[in-house]
Amino acid sequence: MKENILGVDVCHDTYDELAAKLMEDINQRNTSFIVAINPEKIMKAQEDEELRTLLNKATYQIPDGIGVILASKLRKGKIRERVTGIDMMMKLCETATVEGKRIFLYGAKPGIAREAKVKLEEKFPGIQIVGVLDGYEKDKQVIETTINESKADIVFVALGSPAQENWILANKDHLYPSVYQGVGGSFDVISGRLNRAPEVFQRFGLEWLYRLIKEPWRLKRQLALPKFLLKALKG
């Protein structure tokens, strides 16, 4: 089930429901694509038809942002649980470990994907991370060959948005893996290069507030949230 918020589709599924669907996609050799949806992306999509089309082409649009949950409630929708990009990645890593699925890490600066691989192997003993490739590799043939030869089932793509989503759409149909997720700066967080908001901020969906405290220059971007909620209510 999906809900449409200002022209952008958003899934109702929980972490467990999505993980189960994605494992089934792998088992059935269906190609699927996960994109994280937040108020900023929805607002940008109002003026950028190409971005809106890109977001709606995903198989699963996860509600990554407390603003999306609030908008759904205002519109009497059914989205009640935030599904963040990094936590969806971790849930998939956990499930893939249990199910014996293979993972590939593509993107970020040189060395970071490899550091993230080490951290994931510590957290999930037995996880099969069958390849890593940094985002500075520009040879398309090298990228395609490396991913295909790994026989990975899942590829996490850390190229920043919307570059990672555009890459997934352009390449998923001729690559071996079944599941593709754009994960932004998640490799940096997992590797320990970048600190995530403390757990108390995460629990209440206040990571935006933590980032604002740490980076006051974000204030202008955060002021877009009330505009988004007002537009969602009217829409």
Rank of each mutant, 00 (worst) to 15 (best):
T14F: 09
Y15Q: 07
Y15K: 09
Y15M: 06
D16H: 01
E17H: 08
L18P: 03
L18C: 08
L18N: 06
A19D: 02
A19T: 09
A19R: 02
A19G: 08
A20R: 01
A20C: 00
A20Y: 00
K21Y: 07
K21Q: 14
K21T: 03
K21C: 09
L22N: 05
L22P: 02
M23K: 04
E24P: 02
E24C: 02
E24N: 06
D25G: 03
I26Q: 02
N27Q: 12
N27C: 09
N27W: 05
Q28K: 14
Q28S: 12
R29S: 11
N30E: 10
T31Q: 09
S32G: 04
S32E: 01
S32D: 02
S32A: 08
F33P: 00
I34N: 05
I34T: 07
I34R: 03
I34L: 15
V35Y: 05
A36C: 10
A36Q: 04
A36H: 04
I37P: 08
P39W: 08
P39A: 11
E40C: 07
K41L: 15
K41N: 08
M43Q: 09
K44I: 11
A45N: 03
A45E: 01
A45H: 04
Q46I: 13
D48R: 06
E49A: 14
E50M: 10
E50Y: 09
L51P: 03
L51N: 03
R52G: 01
L54P: 10
L54C: 10
L54K: 13
L55S: 04
N56M: 07
N56H: 07
K57W: 12
K57P: 03
A58H: 06
A58L: 12
A58E: 06
T59I: 13
T59E: 06
Y60G: 03
Y60E: 04
Y60T: 07
Q61S: 14
I62P: 04
I62K: 05
P63Q: 04
D64V: 05
G65S: 06
G65I: 10
G67V: 10
G67M: 07
G67N: 01
V68G: 01
V68K: 04
V68D: 01
I69S: 03
I69N: 01
I69Y: 00
L70E: 09
L70P: 02
L70W: 14
L70C: 07
A71S: 14
A71K: 07
A71Y: 11
S72Y: 05
L74R: 13
L74W: 14
R75K: 13
R75V: 08
R75D: 00
K76T: 00
K76P: 00
G77R: 04
I79T: 08
R80Q: 11
E81D: 12
R82E: 11
R82M: 12
R82G: 08
V83N: 04
V83M: 08
T84S: 15
G85D: 12
G85S: 14
I86H: 00
M90N: 11
M90R: 11
M90S: 07
M90I: 13
M90K: 14
K91F: 08
K91T: 15
L92G: 06
L92I: 11
L92Q: 07
L92C: 10
C93L: 14
C93K: 07
C93M: 14
C93A: 15
T95F: 00
T95I: 11
T95Q: 14
A96M: 06
T97E: 07
T97V: 10
V98T: 15
E99L: 13
E99Q: 15
E99R: 15
